Amino acid sequence: MNLKFFLVLQFYRGGKMKYSTVIFDFDYTLADATYGIVSSFNHAFSRLGIPEHDCESIKRTVGLPLDEAFVQLTGHKDEVLINCFKTLFREKADEIMLKNTRLFEDTASTLQRLKYNGIYTGIVTTKYHYRIDETLNLHGISHLVDVIVGGEDVKVPKPSPEGLLLAIGSLNSKMNDVLYIGDSLVDAKTALAANVDFAAVTTGTTNEKEFLQYPCIKVLNNLSELKELIKI
């Protein structure tokens, strides 16, 4: 199907979009944890004697599993080194990530609007499940999210559809009633693999032109635009 057609494709039921379930990625979709992520990467690099990397290079890896991000940034594929990196990253992240994670200004209001309209919500991310729980609890919005699937909850990370399908199954949602929203091509590939609709947000490092390589019903500038897309 033509990708431009996907971009404008909208199905209505009684004047509303068809979705009963909206599932989100986390980093750069619902929140900005740049300082914590970059600091944790460079802490681990420094401890391993690897040169630190600039912020933008690290940001481009957000959404990838840590081992893939490490290989992409350093070129090192040694399993022992990768595991040491992951341990050092997690130790630093446990110390600083929560207090340095900022929800986007329209995150809470978007989730509230979805819940008010009876739409199920979820988060599917490569980030640790417990870290998502901590962040939602800190900001008092855990009751607005029905299901969370984190990196440790799956055998194969995104863009495998495993996590997204797990979330959909736990909500007993029909596949054609689900919209997945994310900020990266990993998210677009995940939705495609799961055979669910995808909407992109450009609050990360991926631009509209890049998203149009994949089926995408809409490219949003921010989450506030979701209310117009699904008519809530």
Rank of each mutant, 00 (worst) to 15 (best):
I119G: 10
I119A: 13
Y120A: 14
Y120I: 00
Y120L: 11
T121L: 10
T121Y: 02
G122Q: 12
I123H: 07
I123R: 09
I123Y: 02
T126D: 03
T126M: 03
K127H: 06
K127M: 09
K127P: 09
Y128P: 13
Y128Q: 14
H129L: 05
Y130S: 15
Y130V: 08
Y130T: 12
Y130N: 15
R131T: 05
R131H: 15
R131C: 10
R131D: 14
D133S: 12
L136G: 04
L136W: 08
N137T: 03
N137D: 11
H139L: 12
G140N: 09
G140C: 07
G140Y: 07
G140V: 02
S142V: 00
S142Q: 15
H143F: 05
L144G: 02
L144N: 07
V145W: 07
V145N: 09
D146A: 08
I148R: 01
I148T: 01
V149W: 02
G150W: 03
G150S: 02
G151I: 00
E152H: 03
E152F: 04
E152S: 14
D153G: 07
V154F: 05
K155F: 00
K155D: 12
V156L: 12
P157V: 01
P157S: 07
K158D: 11
K158A: 11
K158Q: 08
S160C: 13
P161Q: 11
P161W: 03
P161E: 13
E162V: 00
G163Q: 08
L164V: 02
L164T: 02
L165N: 06
A167K: 02
A167H: 06
I168H: 00
G169M: 05
G169E: 04
G169Q: 01
G169L: 02
S170E: 15
S170N: 15
L171R: 06
N172W: 03
S173V: 05
K174M: 11
K174Y: 05
M175W: 06
M175Q: 13
N176Q: 14
D177R: 12
D177A: 10
L179E: 13
L179W: 10
I181A: 08
G182A: 07
G182V: 05
D183I: 03
D183M: 06
S184Y: 02
S184D: 08
L185T: 15
L185R: 14
V186F: 07
D187K: 10
D187I: 00
D187Y: 03
D187V: 01
A188S: 14
A188Q: 11
K189R: 15
T190K: 05
A191T: 07
A191S: 09
A191Q: 06
A193E: 14
A193F: 01
N195H: 11
N195P: 00
V196I: 08
V196T: 06
D197I: 00
A199E: 04
A199N: 07
A200Y: 04
T202G: 01
G204F: 07
G204T: 07
G204N: 11
G204E: 13
T205R: 09
T206D: 11
N207D: 15
N207M: 04
E208I: 00
E208F: 02
K209L: 12
K209F: 04
E210G: 09
F211Y: 07
F211S: 02
L212Q: 12
L212R: 14
L212T: 09
L212K: 14
Q213L: 15
Q213G: 13
Y214V: 08
P215W: 06
P215N: 12
C216N: 13
C216Q: 09
I217G: 03
